[in-house]
Amino acid sequence: MNVFRLVGDLSHLLAIIMLLKKIWSSRSCAGISGKSQLLFALVFTTRYLDLFTSFISVYNTSMKVIYILCAYATVYLIYVKFKATYDHNHDTFRAEFLVVPVGGLAFLVNHDFTPLEILWTFSIYLESVAIMPQLFMISKTGEAESITSHYLFCLGGYRALYIINWLYRFYSEGFFDLIAIVAGCVQTILYCDFFYLYITKVIYGQKLSLPA
């Protein structure tokens, strides 16, 4: 465990909790892509099946459980409790266009052809593109509320910190996992355009809206 990973994990946790709190306190999930949240729930479920097979640390186990619970709580708020506020007309990204190719790729490119390993690989690939419905929704409506922007910034920050963590681990321990690194870089690149908008607009107190 190094400081980059710890801060990355905490940034990830902050993003998840911030989104939950926003939906809960505004009693609304307007502007949030339910599809992205469903995909994240699927990501955590398929990745953390090793909760049943291996124990790494109390930190590791508790973070996994918290991520899974928060992901399902978010999905519940969007699709059940505050369903009336869900903006499904704008959440039109076809999630199957992500899940099917990613599933195929997980079968073809993985560390080991076993069920748990394929599901882990699937979750890594899926996480790298799971934010696309949310980014698509923002590009469709042309704007995002500032909390939604902070959420995306924390998620992107988590990815960027993980890349620094991998560089650090490569030089200090000779550790690297090519699947995680390639997928992680793809995921971080997806946030780049958003980062630019965030820094130029949200930080200067404006709502994030796309240039017409």
Binding site: R5, H12, D50, I56, S57, H111, T114, N165, F175
Partner: peptide, 10 residues
């Protein structure tokens, strides 16, 4: 190269 079971990252 990491063994598949050694997944310590989240």
């Amino acid at each position: 190269y990491r063994q598949p079971h050694e997944k310590d990252e989240l």
